[in-house]
Structure formats: C-alpha cells, structure tokens
C-alpha cells in the first residue's frame, strides 16, 4: 500500500501537467512525421529558441513577449523546413534523423554564442513567472501553470482535431499522412500540406516554450533537450504512425514518469530513468507497433 499512498492528489496534478505539455510536443513531432516521415530531433531547439525569446523580451509587456516568442519559433520552423527538410525529402530515415541531430547541435551552438555575450551562461525569463505560484484547491497546492498547461493542451488538441477533420487543408494533411504519393496524384499540393504541418508544429513548440519557461525560467542552450528526447521515446512507444496514438504516448510517458518518481523510495529516485526506460523496453517488446495501436499488427511487406 505504501506505493499507492505516496501517489496523492498533488502528484496526480503534476502528472497531468507534465503529461499535457508532453502531449503538445508529441503532436508537434507527430504532425511533421506524418507528412514528411521525418523524426525531427531538432524540435527541442525550436522550443529553446522560443524560451530565449521570452528571456530577452522580459522587459516587454507579457502579451508582446509571448507573441514574439511564437513569431520566432514559427519563422525558425519554416526556415528549417525550407533549408533542411525540403532537400532531404527523398533521403533515407537514418540520414534525415542524423541531419536533424546536426541541426540541433548547430542551433544549440548558436544559442551558446548569443547567450555568452553577457559573459555568463543562462538567461532568466522573469515576466511570466507569476504563473508558477501555487493555488490551493481542496487543501492541495496546485501551481497555476498546471491548469494553464492542461487547458492549453486540451484547447489546442480540440482545435487541431477540428481543423484536421473539418477543413480542406486538414483533409489534405490526413490524406498526405496516410499515403503521400497517392495524395499527390489526387491533387494534394505537397508544399502547402507540409507548410501547414510545419507551421502548426511551430505554434505548438511556441506554446510549449511558454509553458516550460514558466516552470523553469532559467533558460540555457540545452533547454527542453531532455524533454524532447523523452517525448520522442514516448511518441514511438505510443505509436508514431498515427497522430492520436503518438499524442497519447507523449502524455503517457510524462504522466508515468511523475508517478514512478513519486512511487520510488526517496533514496532510489536517482534510478528513475532506469525504471522508466526499462518500462519503455518492455512495452516495445510487447507492442512494437505502439502501445495504443490497437487492431493492427505490424505486417511484413510482401515481396
């Protein structure tokens, strides 16, 4: 019982908060994967760029600061597509992935140079920090940002679901995600669909930048790097072939990490990554196509 007793409402609140942020990142990664078949490792650096924008515009009104964060992230996301993803469209998955490693390192190195102009590492984004204060709900302290995160995630997911199911561009995107070549033959314009996916994924990265910066206002070049890696793992564990299984995977890994952290004895919490990644291996072995990919077995392509 001791394990269950340690998982209280407080922990559940944190778990939902982190799960919501990871779900947003999972959608951003999953959308681009859907149309480009590209695992974008540099997604975290988009978030990092947004966080730096928030830090450097700390003196501005909060709204202006957040708008500029979104603008920078979307612009960077589009530039990444134009300069890197487009020439790579016909390359093998390994080449695409390794190129995004290189881009991630490139952006991190650039951020380091910009950051070090004032002689010390890290910048503080102070203007939106008040969201990090706790409010008491039924005797449990929950940080305001948890509500905001869950709210933003739900709102963004519902809006995206509506766009994907009710609009032409959404229909085109879904068609491209299930079979790009056939969709193109049927008149779907590749560049428009990809630009749509890239912009939406950039907007989501901007939102995540705001939410993560509230929780951790100290921005460094490796900001969000660890989160991105965990979300990438979660996306594959959930099932990267479909957007909703990828999203659930992202949510699940955030949610489960917080719960496992709470369940471990205090002197053993340093082994949290081992426990989480051992779970990842078990899930992958049992359901290689994805934890939530029900009803479809991974069939080997016939000759």
């Amino acid at each position: 019982m001791s394990v269950l007793a340690s998982i209280d409402l407080q922990t559940l609140g944190d778990a939902f908060g982190l799960g919501a942020i990871y779900a947003l990142m999972a959608v951003g990664i999953g959308l681009v994967f859907g149309v480009l078949r590209l695992v974008n490792f540099a997604y975290g650096q988009l978030i990092m760029a947004g966080a730096y924008t928030l830090a450097y515009t700390s003196g501005w009104p909060v709204a202006a600061s957040i708008v500029s964060c979104f603008a920078v992230v979307v612009a960077l996301s589009l530039a990444m597509d134009r300069v890197v993803f487009r020439p790579l469209r016909s390359s093998s998955p390994a080449v695409m992935l390794v190129t995004t490693f290189a881009i991630a390192f490139l952006l991190q190195a650039v951020a380091l140079i910009i950051d070090l102009r004032d002689g010390q590492l890290g910048e503080v984004a102070s203007s939106i920090a008040p969201l990090n204060q706790a409010v008491s709900v039924g005797g449990v302290d929950v940080r305001k940002v948890t509500f905001v995160a869950v709210g933003v995630a739900l709102g963004a997911l519902i809006a995206l679901a509506l766009v994907l199911t009710r609009t032409t561009i959404g229909l085109h995107t879904r068609a491209a995600a299930s079979d790009f070549r056939t969709a193109r033959l049927l008149g779907v314009r590749a560049n428009r669909v990809i630009a749509f996916a890239v912009v939406v994924s950039g907007l989501l990265a901007g939102a995540v930048a705001v939410l993560l910066t509230v929780q951790n206002p100290f921005v460094q070049p490796d900001f969000a790097l660890e989160d991105t890696i965990i979300v990438l793992v979660g996306v594959v564990v959930g099932g990267i072939d479909r957007l909703w299984t990828a999203t659930l995977g992202g949510f699940a890994i955030g949610f489960v990490s917080v719960l496992v952290n709470a369940a471990l004895p205090t002197d053993q919490t340093v082994f949290l990554p081992s426990v989480v990644y051992a779970l990842v291996i078990v899930v992958l072995l049992l359901r290689p196509a994805g934890l939530f990919a029900w009803g479809r077995r991974a069939a080997m392509e016939r000759v």
């Binding site: 695992v39 998955p93 990438l232 793992v233 594959v236 564990v237 990267i240 340093v270 082994f271 990554p273 081992s274 990644y277 051992a278 990842v280 291996i281 992958l284 072995l285 290689p288 196509a289």
Partner: peptide, 17 residues
C-alpha cells in the same frame, strides 16, 4: 524506429546505472 528507441533506452539505463 522501435529498435532505435529500445536501444536508446539501453543507453539511458547504462548511463544511469
């Protein structure tokens, strides 16, 4: 990708231990 992520999990566990 499942193999990629599972082997990555091995790296994380090895590093952590």
């Amino acid at each position: 990708l499942a193999a990629g992520i599972a082997t990555f999990a091995v790296l994380e566990i090895t590093h952590n231990v």
